[in-house]
Design a protein around this nucleic acid. Structure first.
Lengths: 206, 206
DNA sequence: GTCTATACCAAGATAGAC
DNA sequence: GTCTATCTTGGTATAGAC
């Protein structure tokens, strides 16, 4: 059907639709992660993505659908990262591989925080459904595929939530002024702490 | 000065100012806990408190100041609860007393969730400051007053954040349909689970 | 101390050109 | 596929009466 419509002289931005969608999704993840669902405007997302506000709405229909897409993408990225971590370096203990994979997700700025914002909006019909479903999927994965017991799985999730909170609360801002902040960050992130500090834009190289 | 202005014939609602403030603060805690800072309107808070929207603004100045007051109150209530738990039942291990006190805070509906919403808004100058300060205060308390080591303190906080997340995501909705949800809830709440299930308005008595 | 009425602005969404 | 212009709603905050 319409087999390539050979010699299409005009350079139509073919397939750009998907690329744009992904671009906006990435930008949206960052903004939503910083300001939350309701606190983010479609205009801020548009600015971050370098497109116009109506175009953002055009692509996803509504702001809520955009946020849901952000959540779903975040969950997908996370599961892919977990599965990959599970398949690599089999000499290391599972929980350590999972932990490292989780911390590495901080590279995808706003990803874990967007999830966190979704997690506390369980009262919202649509957002709540996606959030619960995703959270349960992770738990199931940890038990069924990663082979963790229910206690270990809960432990892993708990530390994940603490990490998310420390990042969301910007505890890094207190890193070099407050010893307790430093202690918590080092305890939660270990060797990966420099990674987080490097991401912090307000930090001056010392 | 104006010593009681004896025989003030008109029954002016004296001191009602503080009472009203507390009333609105409590209502606001519930609404903010459910919808977050940006997702809440001053009108919703007013409706929940049974007063007019302009009056809510009048009392606190701005919506942001109201939210900051909610956060501060939540932190204060929590610290009081922790200190009390520490002074009672000295035969029980500290972490157990702290844990029970924490779970009991769920009675104050929206309190822990309002805090959680504040915790993920660290990028906001005012909210972030209060959130970080409060979080660090809890950590300091756990180490200095409750006598926990840094690892135990972090562990405690981690489980607290998981609990907050499970409540925020409304995992209770899946309690009797999803075995994994049930397992997580029972693992995190233990004997206190019925307390949470009872709070859930959507649950039908079985 | 509390309300009604309202000004004012921000933001999501639509229309329609290119 | 992407933009500019704009409609419309809803929400914070103010004015002012009681």
């Amino acid at each position: 059907m319409s087999s390539m419509s050979a010699e299409a002289s005009i350079p139509i931005p073919r397939m750009a639709s998907d690329e744009r969608r992904e671009l906006v999704l990435k930008a949206a993840t960052e903004v939503f992660g910083q300001r939350g669902y309701a606190g983010t405007t479609t205009d801020q997302v548009a600015a971050a993505a370098g497109v116009s506000q109506p175009y953002v709405v055009r692509i996803f229909g509504t702001k809520e659908k955009l946020f849901l897409a952000v959540l779903q993408r975040a969950l997908d990225v996370m599961m892919v990262a977990f599965r990959q971590a599970l398949s690599e370096e089999p000499e290391l203990p599972v929980s350590q591989r999972m932990g490292r994979a989780y911390v590495d997700l901080l590279q995808d700025r706003g990803l874990l925080l967007s999830l966190m914002h979704g997690f506390v909006l369980g009262a919202d019909p649509e957002i709540g459904r996606v959030a619960r479903c995703g959270f349960l999927e992770v738990y199931k994965f940890l038990k069924a595929e990663a082979g963790l017991g229910s206690v270990e799985a809960a432990e892993f999730l708990a530390h994940g939530m603490l990490l998310n909170t420390l990042v969301g609360i910007r505890m890094t801002d207190e890193y070099d002024t407050n010893p307790d902040a430093r202690e918590m960050l080092e305890g939660s992130l270990g060797a990966k702490l420099p990674l987080l500090l490097a991401l912090d834009h307000t930090r001056t190289a010392s």
